[in-house]
Simulated scan of single mutants.
Amino acid sequence: MTHARSARAVPDPRLTILVLEDELEVREALEADLAPFADIARVEPAEDVPDAHAVLDEVAADGDVLALVLADHRLPGRSGTDFLVELMASGRHPHVRTVLVTGQADHADTIRAVNEGGLDYYVAKPWNPDDLRALVRRQLTEYVLWSGADPVPHLRVLETERALEAVRGRSEL
């Protein structure tokens, strides 16, 4: 007698938002503003660059993907700009979207983040929570569209119209 194996569905990788911020109150405020995303996307805090690398290792070990980094510039040790430059140079996350959330980056730091770190957006502190959520939704949508990920499991955290257009476009192929 043979037994049929039940096929176990492999879950889609979760999109991860890395929040790199050393000030506890600011990090907690960002996490609170991103709470509406947390049931679909992972929101992972890190207080400095070594902590961010540990988070990236954990995300990879879980089979999830780094979709978005929200990084402060001024951090203890190495700066958020240094982290973004290093992240882009590694080639491990080619489609990751990056946002500098800071009130202290000077002109040279910002230019370096754009030119060498692939910076996608700059948000000045203090931020508007609704604007931040709209920006995160837009950046996650960009990540999904550019990476070729299936938008369907992530629809609730994406710009719905753009994501559905991508789904319709794929079904027409």
Score class of each variant (00 low, 15 high):
52 A>I: 08
41 A>F: 11
96 V>F: 12
56 L>Q: 08
111 I>S: 01
110 T>H: 08
80 G>P: 04
42 R>L: 14
35 A>C: 00
58 E>V: 08
96 V>T: 13
32 A>V: 10
57 D>W: 05
98 T>D: 09
103 G>W: 00
31 E>R: 15
41 A>S: 15
16 T>F: 00
107 H>N: 04
16 T>C: 06
35 A>Q: 10
75 L>V: 09
77 G>C: 07
16 T>N: 12
22 D>E: 13
92 R>D: 13
79 S>G: 12
118 G>T: 07
68 L>F: 10
42 R>P: 03
113 A>Q: 01
35 A>P: 02
102 T>L: 14
20 L>I: 01
51 D>T: 07
62 D>H: 13
89 A>M: 06
65 V>Y: 02
21 E>M: 02
100 L>I: 08
111 I>Q: 06
15 L>R: 04
43 V>C: 11
11 P>H: 09
39 D>M: 03
96 V>I: 04
57 D>T: 12
10 V>I: 11
116 E>G: 05
26 V>E: 00
92 R>I: 03
74 R>Q: 07
104 Q>R: 14
21 E>F: 02
97 R>M: 09
94 P>F: 01
95 H>S: 09
60 A>Q: 13
96 V>Q: 09
22 D>L: 03
114 V>R: 01
60 A>S: 08
72 D>M: 04
119 L>F: 01
108 A>C: 06
115 N>A: 12
109 D>V: 03
25 E>W: 04
53 H>W: 15
85 V>T: 05
36 P>Y: 03
24 L>C: 13
90 S>K: 06
92 R>V: 05
16 T>I: 05
60 A>T: 15
54 A>V: 14
106 D>Y: 00
38 A>F: 13
64 D>V: 07
102 T>G: 13
111 I>N: 03
22 D>G: 10
10 V>K: 09
38 A>S: 15
80 G>M: 06
44 E>H: 12
88 M>K: 09
14 R>F: 01
110 T>L: 14
31 E>T: 03
55 V>G: 06
104 Q>P: 07
46 A>F: 05
118 G>N: 11
37 F>Q: 06
50 P>W: 08
66 L>S: 06
66 L>N: 08
106 D>L: 07
53 H>S: 08
